[in-house]
Design a protein around this nucleic acid. Sequence first.
DNA 1: ATCGTTAATTTAACACCGTTAACTTAAAAT
DNA 2: ATTTTAAGTTAACGGTGTTAAATTAACGAT
Lengths: 213, 213
Amino acid sequence: MPPKVKSLEDREKLRARIIDAARTLFVERGIEAVSMREIAKKINYSATTLYHHFADKDALLQAVCDEDFLKLASGMRELMQLPNLIERIQALSKGYAMFALQYPNHYRLMFMTPRAPCNLDITEIEQGNTEQDAYAQLKLVVKEAFDAGLFRPEITHFELIAQTLWASTHGVCSLEIALGNEPWIQWVEIDRRFNLMQRAVLRGLLRDPDSVE
Amino acid sequence: MPPKVKSLEDREKLRARIIDAARTLFVERGIEAVSMREIAKKINYSATTLYHHFADKDALLQAVCDEDFLKLASGMRELMQLPNLIERIQALSKGYAMFALQYPNHYRLMFMTPRAPCNLDITEIEQGNTEQDAYAQLKLVVKEAFDAGLFRPEITHFELIAQTLWASTHGVCSLEIALGNEPWIQWVEIDRRFNLMQRAVLRGLLRDPDSVE
DNA sequence: ATCGTTAATTTAACACCGTTAACTTAAAAT
DNA sequence: ATTTTAAGTTAACGGTGTTAAATTAACGAT
């Protein structure tokens, strides 16, 4: 028993409900295991309706991730207040890791699942916008520290440093999420793994290793 | 025009052909994009035949991966001959990374996908067996270097070191696999990312940072 | 040699999937 | 009062993983 011409506001509301339902199911059971029909049923619509809001399943997935990226970025922005550059880098790294481990399934969607390369036209996130992009914030701090000469002189490219820092934290977190309770690995506590990684990689990058911690 | 009672040897041969066809297609186009029917057609059999050799698509996938990880482990075993301990660690790390980037779809399945109950019963790989398990080999070298006093003295647990080294390489590789062609990141070349990570983390872990490279 | 058995393989079908064309319905615009 | 518009539906297409049932050919025993 269908239609009622809806206001633009209502349309946005339905869009949001679709995204929320999709996220819940994706996170519960994995992307491939969730069908468009299921998502639709969860909010009492037919599957076709989803296609009036999103071009296809990938676009819906992209929308789910976009929201989570924004949330992550806004959480990180608060940490950018710390005055000491190295402490700020450490705080960003720690904040990122806590997000990953607190919302492992979101993290999986965002950073561990190869998806069709996002059409920049389709994403609503302004990449590079510090307000919206967590990686842009890391780049910002790293550049500042780079310009201040804090890193070893043979490293000539600051973005390479940012990507290395990112990869180190991502390595610890994603391994924990993917294999954290495999019985054949005697994992050391995740905190100790995170701390050693952060210490080691920073010591390895900084001109003065003893300035860390 | 079907059957001919086949010897046990022939049965093994067909099993191998299925695995090879599956691997080729998985690597070419990704796991989800390849259907059982396609794999079967590639070797001129019907889809049903695959199910007489493998319980389902996952089991086939697992068989493909098992083969490749045995190959990985055996490839790594050769690198274990290097006399210098640090060079040996570096070589293991590089070998691991090259495997990950050459077979991103297998790597994704083994190390980037959380498995519910851990398929230890199904896998034919003996974990911990140095001949078959790549992580066991890393542990072996790290322990040797640890006992030789090569690492910084405040690090008291050698397995923590092994896991940190693993996570660092995994971080670079898995980020590349998941987000390597996202247009909103200006990725530095993967080689440079790998090299800096390896240098940095080793310098950060070693008692004598200048012994690296 | 012929029978029954057995194993390899196929065809046909089931219940899903993502997606789309065609249709319904009710409100808004004329 | 009629037309237009858009939200929503049903029904279908061609695909998927998987399985039940049928087919075929070689073997062992009679």
